[in-house]
Amino acid sequence: MSKNEVWVYIEQNEGKIADVSLELLGKATQLADKLKVKVGAVLLGSQIKNLCKTVFSYGADTVYINEDANLKYYTTLPYARVVVDLVKKYQPQIVLYGATTTGRDLAPRITSELKTGLTADCTNLQIGDYSAKDKEYKDILYQIRPAFGGNIIATIVCPDHKPQMATVREGVMKMNEPDSKRTGDIIEHKAEISKDLLITEIVKRFQQEKTVNLKAANIIVSGGIGVGSKDNFDLIIKLAHTIGAEVGASRAAVDAGFVSKDHQVGQTGTTVRPKLYIAIGISGSVQHMAGMSESSRIIAINTDPRAPIFQIAHYGIVGDLNEVLPKFIEVYKSLKK
């Protein structure tokens, strides 16, 4: 087995793989092609072998699987033990994790034990060279992320330590088209999980599928603090229903309680790339735009002609949303007839 693969930590929960892990397999495929190495996937849990097929179909060449009844649910210590074990044994050069609550609990614990670097919430990953004072490094992982509240973009490298590790939020990377004919090697591992690692007991667990699916939406109608009130947000919802769109929001609108956090678009919300994004009463902060600037078409509706959102919009309507939206709905309905 090649020692220097690109690995993805596959997050699974009761037998369901997190989307972000499949997205990372897409990115890992690109990085591995560039490095001319293979893609490895790390899969932990109890009775999860059936998931290997999916993992292969999204781009893994090898699955390192560790099944153990003690790994049925995620808890930090045994999971960290197994991943550290695998990394030490097979020495991948890169390991990627989803920036989920699990990934952000697990990855730093692992980096600390392996004494290597970790970059959180990368929005881009690339391979390139790096030169320090007296040393040249080839084919290093560029870990690109917004910093300082999104006002700057920093490229971080970890040249002297392996593996290079990063977390990435859901929706940022694109999944490969699954290819059900792809297969690969399954390497079964059995790490020793001693009793002193089993000290977190899960008393209760509550989880529900997300009710808002921003990522899958073709059209998103998003409202900001400019909408003014929770009642007035109905106007946004009405437009969304009329044209068959999902409802999005800026963080300011979420913080003001107009809609729930699930609707938030942006750096700390969901990253979206719909065919059409309508930003209404949203100024276009860097953090918001980080999550929607790749939409195919953007319509901005704002009273302030200097709002930054107009700089990335394809269509701009300068005006009061309370006037524009009813007109928009009326015109749309009459054209549909």
Binding site: G117, T119, I152, T155, I156, C158, I299, Q311, Y315
Partner: peptide, 21 residues
């Protein structure tokens, strides 16, 4: 510190084709 900052850039907005409606 294993991680080093290679480069810092300010955020640039990419202007696409713009139509005023």
């Amino acid at each position: 510190s294993p991680t080093k900052v290679k480069q810092i850039e300010s955020v640039v907005l990419e202007a696409g084709e713009f139509k005023n409606i």
